[in-house]
Each structure stands twice: as C-alpha cells, then as structure tokens.
C-alpha cells in the first residue's frame, strides 16, 4: 500500500523561539530557542517517541506542531495539508484531524463540567452529528477507554488520576483524529495504572490506525510504545532511529548516558553507568557548537567550534540519524 510509505506528518525545520523580555518597558532582550530547526516524519499508524530531559523543548515542539504555539519558522504538513500555512478559520477545521492528550490529568479537564459536557463539546463545536448520535458516540468512546455510562454526569474531581487520563483520551478521540500528540500522557500515573493506559494507547493505535507523537522523559515507556524514537537536547533533535536500533545501539553520547542512567529494577544488574557531569545549560545561553559538549564525556575541540548536523550514519542499514561529530 502506498499509504504505508507516504508519511502522515512531515515536520521540516520547525523552530519556536520565545522572546525574553527585560529591562525598561519590557523590551525584548533576547530569544529563547525552545525548539530549533527540528525535522522528522511520522508514518501512518505509527508512533514517534520523543524523549529528553525537562526543559529540552518536547512540549513546545508538540504544541508548535498543533499550532497551539505559533511556530517561529518551519513547516508542518499533515496528510498533505500544510498546517503552518492555514489561515485561522481553516485551522479550526483542521483541528479535527489532530489532537492532544496532556500530562496532568488534574489540570486537563474543566473542573466545573461533567464528563458528558466535556465529551460532547468537540462535536458541538464542529457541528458533527445530531444530539442523539453525539450521545451514542460519547458512550462508544467511554466504552473504548474502558468506562461505563454511569460516569456521564460526574465531575473530574470524582475520579482517580488514571480514570481522568482515560477521559482525556476519550476527548481526544471524539473527532476521529488521524494524529495525536500525547504529552507525558502517563507520567503522572502510578506504575500499575500507567501500564493500563499505555496498553490502551497501544490498542487505539493498532485498532484505529492513529499516529502518535508520544512525548515522555521515560525511555523505558517510550521503547514499549514507539516505532521511531527521537532524542532531544536543548531544543534540537540529536538522534533519530527505529526503536530497536536506538536501544540496541545508541550512538549519541547523550543517548547513551540517558540509557545508562535509568535505574534498573534488578539488583543483580548494578551496571557501570555513565554519570554525566554538571547540569543542563540554560537554553538562554546555549554553548557554542554542539549543545551537549559541556557535559559530553567525549567532547573534542571541534565540538566547540561547529554544531554537528543530523546525518545518516555511515554504514547506513537502518535509517539511523545522529547529530554528533564522532560519526
């Protein structure tokens, strides 16, 4: 099938720079490059996992793709439509095809609206169906996320974190989107509930063929759910590879450090780990050259001079790309 090969989402050179204001009259004194020149693709029905440490720009990237933040530069093409070029009105219509699930199940539902109101709203806004069919759709969605009709008239504060997250997922599904950004969708949940929600997302992906951008700081969670994985550091993608390759053969020194830092629930395997020195530099004053060089155990003089570009690894079996002067 041709659909398998043509990507659903293409992100090209996407940047989001926030103005930094200060001094008199709150003038713009600098720019914070939260996302800087990021490109990648997501195939139909696949999940792209995005990992990186706090503040590296994962959420900003997800929101810029959906134009919840206006991108500073770059293009986003979803299913042939250039999202970044749409005027406001057309964007509203395009929102049907792309949705988002948030991290904080406590903050992502309107506290004074019932589950039914929350789930009906997207269909009302887009004038989909009749009141009858809308209600049926809501019940069907609740069934998909494993909840029954008894929850319809309850308020968010009456649910546990995992249940709220399910409601958030149901809301994202109401418009039958082709693409969903899941921003730390399971990070706030307890392990036993986390695995329930992860399985749910994996199932939706299989059964409904939705593509996901799955954002998380947890490499283990990402591995389980992703086909492709991108590693982000200080606003840039430093490595992109199919999940198996990335975990079997991580190339970028940052990816390696990240992988070795994960605590392993097995006391007999206390491995030697790469402990990084120092802290993540401020995104306001990123280092010259390679953004990772201040903490990189293998930094060379060249790294301070020139920023490495994301390039295809030389032996090039799988499409494994890395931004590092070592390769």
């Amino acid at each position: 099938m041709n659909r398998e090969t043509a990507p659903l989402l293409r992100v090209e050179g996407l940047s989001k720079h926030f103005p930094v204001r200060g001094g008199f009259f709150r003038r713009v004194t600098g720019w914070l490059k939260a996302v800087d020149d990021v490109s990648f693709q997501i195939a139909h029905g696949q999940t792209f996992g995005l990992v990186g440490e706090s503040g590296c720009g994962k959420s900003t990237l997800g929101r810029a793709i959906l134009r919840l933040h206006e991108p500073t530069a770059g293009r986003v093409i979803l299913d042939g439509t250039e999202i970044t070029a749409l005027p406001r009105r057309a964007l509203t219509a395009a929102r049907r095809r792309m949705q988002i699930i948030f991290q904080d199940p406590y903050a992502s539902l309107s506290p004074r609206r019932t589950v039914l109101q929350t789930l009906l709203e997207p269909m009302e806004v887009h004038r989909i169906g009749t009141p009858r069919t809308r209600r049926e759709k809501v019940l069907e969605l609740l069934h998909i996320v494993g909840m029954g009709p008894e929850v319809l008239h309850r308020y968010p504060h009456e649910f546990s974190g995992g249940q709220r997250q399910r409601i958030g997922i149901a809301r994202a599904l109401t418009l039958d989107p082709r693409f969903i950004v899941a921003d730390e969708a399971v990070s706030a949940l307890d392990v036993s509930v986390q695995s329930q929600v992860l399985n749910l997302i994996a199932r939706l992906q299989r059964e409904l063929g939705i593509s996901f951008l799955f954002i998380s700081h947890d490499l283990a969670v990402v591995q389980h759910i992703s086909h492709q994985v991108g590693v982000m550091y200080l606003g840039r993608l430093v490595e992109i590879a199919p999940a198996e390759d990335l975990y079997r053969d991580p190339l970028h020194p940052y990816t390696r450090a990240l992988l070795s830092a994960i605590p392993v629930p097995d006391p007999k395997r206390r491995r030697k780990r790469i402990v990084l020195q120092g802290d993540v530099p401020s995104p306001l004053a990123p280092p010259s050259g390679c953004p990772f060089r201040t903490r990189c155990p293998e930094a060379m003089p060249l790294c301070a001079e020139r920023a490495p570009r994301l390039t295809q690894r030389h032996d090039g079996r799988a499409p494994h790309r890395v931004a590092c002067h070592l390769y």
Binding site: R63, L66, L68, L91, T92, A93, R95, R96, M98, Q99, I100, F102, Q103, D104, A107, S108, L109, S110, P111, R113, E121, P122, V125, H126, G168, R171, L175
Partner: peptide, 22 residues
C-alpha cells in the same frame, strides 16, 4: 495556563467560548 484551556483550543473552540465557558 491550565491544560484544559489548551485542550479547548486544540478542539478548535472559538476564543469567545473558551473565555465564557471554560
């Protein structure tokens, strides 16, 4: 800043409704 407001934007709710309803 709450995510439920962002969720409303992602759904495509007009600004007037976001303000008055959410």
């Amino acid at each position: 800043q709450f995510e439920f407001v962002e969720a409303a934007r992602a759904i495509g709710l007009p600004r007037r409704l976001i303000l008055f309803r959410h």
